[in-house]
């Protein structure tokens, strides 16, 4: 059974600031990132849909210590965002000073952008990630 929306396709779309998901024909849940089967009801009957790319911050952290090869990136903010369509996704947050990030960020509305992680020797190539900014 062919994979309906691969990482490659998802990542290429994200490079155009588009978040793709898979809408479940059985329960209506939108799966992001894509799966073979719905992570709510396990149905494999899924259709590709595009998200609004808007949502609100559920939680965050500022990372001061990071992995080998990414030392130049710290400090940076990681967020879990609930998209307006329901699913949560992980990304980074821009336009906020990482040293000043507080619980005030929680529930703030954000919109999608992207940044490409160029990959390292373990990552099988590059991958786009969501780079959110506060909605103004």
């Amino acid at each position: 059974m062919e994979y309906k929306l691969t990482f490659k396709e998802y990542s290429e779309a994200l490079k155009k600031n588009k978040v793709l998901g898979l809408k479940c024909q059985e329960c209506g849940w939108i799966n992001v990132p894509p799966k073979m089967a719905c992570y709510k009801c396990a149905s494999p009957n899924l259709d590709v849909v595009e998200m609004s790319g808007k949502g609100k911050i559920q939680t965050f952290t500022t990372a001061f210590v990071t992995s080998e090869g990414r030392e130049d990136e710290v400090p940076y903010i990681i967020v879990l965002v609930e998209l307006d369509e329901g699913p949560w996704i992980m990304g980074n947050l821009t336009d906020v000073d990482p040293n000043e990030a507080t619980m005030e960020l929680i529930d703030k509305r954000v919109k999608i952008g992207h940044k490409v992680f160029p990959g390292d020797k373990y990552s099988a190539g590059e991958g786009a990630r969501p780079l959110f900014s506060l909605e103004t």
Partner: peptide
Amino acid sequence: RYEYPSGITFPAVFAMLAH
């Protein structure tokens, strides 16, 4: 593929759970 590009680390996971 979907979370490491954001620079997730193990402390960052539990840091987000703390908030």
